[in-house]
């Protein structure tokens, strides 16, 4: 397993070298693009601070992701179960996604206050939509012949749901979760913009408005690494537990 990461790490190192070389070669001013070494150095000096930000933002992301995944699964399953429910509620889901999350920010703060839960809510909100869509789609596409087979064994709705529909939909749910965890991270970061003092989103804001370019790029780099790590985690979960593809 470990050896499979070698090319990725090599690519990352290569990119950092290229970055450094280009900035030095063309004498790009620091406020346009700081050197890779300056950014890495900033990560070093701000390690404690960035570490705290990572811990906080990661907690928000994972809580929001977990809640969003569960809510999305529940709604997706309900929609797959009842077309009527889907017809009534799904347009509202689409509508809610068409509204930028920024517009909800003040509402979320009013409802949930300034603590971690308002960030969790935004992360969950962004995660839930793709999970809902893919859960519903995955369960709808369940092979009717396999349903008939289970029914012929005397299986009830609940048994068909857990033994057939859920595993059948899992690969498509997994695809949504991989997208959802990145959206959860974005949600947590954006959520912090609605007021807080700790977190990567706050570090991003501070760096942005004070034009502290090395810090800005440091936070962007850290966000990117977290995003990749979370995605890789989901990939690993998928490879280990959701490796099959539905046979039709």
């Amino acid at each position: 397993m470990r050896s499979t990461f070698v090319p990725q790490i090599a690519a990352l190192l290569g990119l950092l070298f290229l970055w450094e070389a280009v900035v030095l070669a063309f004498n790009v001013p620091a406020h346009v693009m700081p050197t890779a070494s300056a950014v890495l150095q900033d990560i070093g000096t701000g390690a404690a601070l960035i570490g705290r930000g990572v811990a906080r933002t990661l907690l928000e992301t994972l809580l929001g992701f977990a809640i969003g995944a569960m809510v999305g699964f529940a709604f997706g399953a309900a929609f797959a179960w009842s077309r009527a429910l889907e017809r009534v509620l799904f347009p509202l889901f689409i509508l809610s996604q068409a509204i930028p999350v920024i517009a909800f920010g003040a509402l979320v703060v009013m409802w949930l206050g300034n603590g971690i839960w308002s960030k969790v809510a935004i992360a969950a909100y962004l995660t839930a939509f793709p999970v809902t869509v893919n859960t519903c789609r995955g369960m709808r596409s369940v092979d009717p012949q396999r349903v008939a087979l289970l029914r012929s064994f005397g299986a009830g709705d609940w048994r068909v749901f857990w033994s057939l529909q859920v595993p059948f939909a899992l690969p498509s749910i997994m695809a949504a979760l991989k997208l959802g965890i990145s959206l959860g991270l974005i949600g947590a970061i954006v959520g912090e913009w609605f007021g807080d003092t700790v977190g990567l989103g706050i570090l991003l804001l501070q760096a942005m408005y004070m034009e502290n370019m090395p810090r800005l790029w440091a936070v962007i780099l850290v966000c990117g690494v977290i995003g990749i790590a979370l995605y890789a985690l989901m990939e690993a979960i998928e490879r280990r537990w959701v490796w099959w593809r539905p046979e039709l």
Binding site: Q145, L149, S152, F153, G154, A155
Partner: peptide
């Protein structure tokens, strides 16, 4: 008759997971 007759359709319909 659901649950009373053992039924095997044309395709094996095994569950891949």
């Amino acid at each position: 008759l659901l649950g009373k007759v053992a039924f095997m359709p044309q395709r094996d319909l095994l569950l891949p997971w």
